[in-house]
Write a protein that binds this DNA or RNA. Structure first.
Length: 342
DNA sequence: CGACGGGACGC
DNA sequence: CGACGGGACGC
């Protein structure tokens, strides 16, 4: 990993080029939580298929040389690192080891932060476009790089005219990375800053507070809440600020009724599940009928886990029929279906 | 003379 | 819970 470091000259305040190049290009390094007994050779064997590995580093205790069960792998490209994360998070590396590994995009070394980088920060790109572009034009240009959740264009609020700037949200980090890597340079595509950006300097407190709110609240004992009919049909919109929020909720549709317990038992195998719920018929144990369908919801900690659940469970048989598992609250779901004629 | 560089979201 | 080595440096 030296080809990138030499030219940049290290403009950032007081950091040696060798250190900065660890994260060049941005988001090309992954952080892994693994078994203390997994050797580097196994990592190389399992991760080389995602791209050009520039460095593998198993972190060890300085004195005892024992692995601390964490590792970093540096890829040449961000899209390679993202694909490795998407494919390998939650997998087991060795047959005799039952603990699934964790894989995240590594925080840049100069950031000093150790919070997990979330999909929200990795799936939306910011582009410069001709003023004549509509959202549909933008979608057409960028759909070749992956599944688009939505497109938006910044417009003058009074005249409605485009300011020549747009956003594209993809379903997966690797898709946003591929768009940035491969789209025409005139788009000047970069990752978009999250909308409600923390002040970035004293971020430690901010994020730990957010995590408390997201995870805290005790283990969701209301896993099977039998008193929620009152809220029907307004499923709690907890964190859906319009279409800007990233969907972490899945909808599950079946021709045949299923219980919340059944829903939980099949979704529980996917790491990151926060809770399941069904829209319940107050007088039976089975789900409420909505437009002739039986509907449940499963909420995940992040989009990566939600995507895992889709690929693992969509089409799986429950009570003798195939389940349809898709993102819930996705405003694009309808038009997506229209465009793909099947 | 003659064409580069810029860039942030209605809570 | 789970976060940062090694190597060697041209002005």
């Amino acid at each position: 990993m030296d080809e990138a470091g030499s030219s940049a000259g290290g403009g950032v305040s007081g950091f040696r080029p060798g250190v900065d190049s660890l994260d060049e290009p941005p988001n090309s390094r992954i952080f892994l939580v693994i078994s203390k007994y997994t050797p580097e050779a196994v990592l190389r064997e399992r991760f080389s298929r995602f791209g050009d590995i520039q460095d593998i580093w198993v972190v060890r205790d300085k004195h005892t040389k024992e692995s601390k069960g964490i590792a970093f792998i540096k890829f040449a490209r961000s899209s390679q690192a993202c694909r490795a994360m998407e494919e390998m998070h939650g997998q087991c590396l060795e047959p005799n080891n039952t603990k699934p590994i964790k894989v995240f995009i590594a925080q840049s070394r100069s950031s000093g932060s150790h919070r997990d980088v979330e999909d929200e920060e990795l799936t939306r790109i910011f582009v410069m476009i001709p003023k004549s572009y509509t959202e549909e034009d933008l979608r057409e240009k960028f759909k070749v790089y992956g599944d688009i959740e939505y497109c938006s264009i910044i417009k003058n609020k009074v005249t409605g005219e485009s300011k020549g700037l747009g956003y594209v949200r993809y379903l997966k980090p690797s898709q946003a990375a591929q768009a940035i890597e491969n789209c025409d340079r005139s788009f000047r595509a970069i990752l978009a800053e999250p909308k409600n950006k923390p002040s970035e300097s004293s971020e430690q407190d901010y994020y730990s507070n957010m995590r408390q709110e997201a995870l805290g609240h005790e283990p969701r004992v209301n896993m099977f809440p039998f008193d929620q009919q009152s809220e029907f049909p307004n499923f709690d919109k907890n964190e859906n600020r319009g279409q800007e929020a990233i969907s972490k909720r899945l909808s599950v549709v079946s021709r045949v009724p299923f219980t919340e317990e059944q829903l939980f038992s099949i979704f529980d195998i996917v790491p990151g599940l926060e809770y399941c719920e069904v829209q319940r018929d107050p007088y039976s144990n089975y789900v409420y009928l909505v437009s002739g369908k039986n509907v449940g919801y499963a909420k995940f900690a992040d989009r990566m886990s939600a995507n895992d659940a889709i690929s693992t469970l969509h089409g799986k048989i429950l009570n003798g029929v195939r389940l349809k598992v898709m993102l819930a609250d996705s405003p694009r779901e309808e038009s997506n279906k229209r465009q793909r004629t099947y």
